[in-house]
Amino acid sequence: MAKAPARAIADPPIPNRERPGEPLPFEATKEQLLDFYKQMLLIRRFEEKAGQLYGLGLIGGFCHLYIGQEAVAVGLQSALDGDKDSVITGYRDHGHMLAYGIDPQVIMAELTGRAAGISKGKGGSMHMFSTEKRFYGGHGIVGAQVSLGAGLAFKHKYSGDGGVCMAYFGDGAANQGQVYEAFNMAELWKLPIIFVIENNQYAMGTSVNRASAEDQLYRRGESFRIPGIQVDGMDVLACRGAAETALEWVRAGKGPVILEMKTYRYRGHSMSDPAKYRSREEVQAVRDKSDPIEHVKQLLAAQGVKEEDLKTVEQAIRKTVNEAADFAESTPEPDPAELYTDVLVETY
C-alpha cells in the first residue's frame, strides 16, 4: 500500500475563537511623547526620592519602587477614559497613582505616614486609593486585586456605565489560585476587564522560570478562552498600542483580555531586598539597552526636541518631587483621635 504523501507543512492550528489583532505601536505626536516623558520621569524621580527618604527613616515598613517599569503604567493608563474606567493594582502602586495624575504631595505624605496623606496616614505605601480618580488601590495581599478587579468590572457591566477595569498584577501573583478563579468568572460573564501581568522577571527573589511551569504568562488565560498578548513593557508606545487593542476588544463586549508586559525592575523587590538573586551586570545591561525613559528621550531628540528643553522638564520635575518630599517631611502626623475613625462607616 502506498504511503500517503507527507505534508510539506503542517496546517496551522485552528484557533478555538477569535483573537484581537496584533497591536501596533502608538503613533504619538511630539506633545504626547513629551507628556509620556514627563510622566515617566516624574515616577522615576519620585521613586528615587522615596528610596532616599526610606534610607533616612522617614518612610517605614515596606516600600516597593516602580523604577524601570514606568512605561507600563504610563502607556496603559494614557489610553483609559478617566471618566469611567477604573484601575486596581497590588502593593507596587506609587507609579500607577502618579500616572493617574494624583498629586505627588499626598502620595509622598502617605509614605511618611502623615495626616495629609491620601489615606490620612493610615494606609502607607501599599494601601493608597483615590475613588475620585477611580483608582481602587493599592492592595497588600498578592493576587487579591485580581478578584477585586473582576468585581469592579462586574460593577461596570451591572450598571452599564461603559467602563473597563484595568487590573495589574505581577508575575508572582500570576501563580495565585484566585487569579484563575477570577479569569474563569470574567470570561464566563464577559466582564470588561484587562488583566495586566507586569512581568518584571522576579517574584521577590524567584525568577519566573523557577516558579512558573508556563513562563509565557500571556498564555495563562488559554484554558479560560481569554486571549493574551505579550508586550514590550519597556516601550511606552508599545504599551499604549497594546492598551488600545485591548480596550477595543473589551469595549466591544468580547470579554477580558490579558496583557503580559515584559518589563524589569531595577531596584530590589522592596527597599529591604539586597537583590542577591541576580547580577549587577544583568541590571546594568537592561538600564543601558532598554531603559524606557532613555528610549523616549531618543525619540524626542529625533523629533527635534532640544536637549535644553528636556533639561528644563527635568528641573521642573525635580522641583515637584522635592516639594513633595519637603511637604511629606513637614506636614503633621495624624491626630491621635484618628486612631478610632474610619473603622466603620455607620454608628451602631
Partner: peptide, 25 residues
Amino acid sequence: RRVIDTPITEYGFAGVGTGAAMGGL
C-alpha cells in the same frame, strides 16, 4: 442580572463581590 450563580470558587467570588462593593454596588 441580579441573582447570579457562581462557579464553585469561594475565594474568587468573595473577591468579585468585595470589588463590586468597592465599586459602589
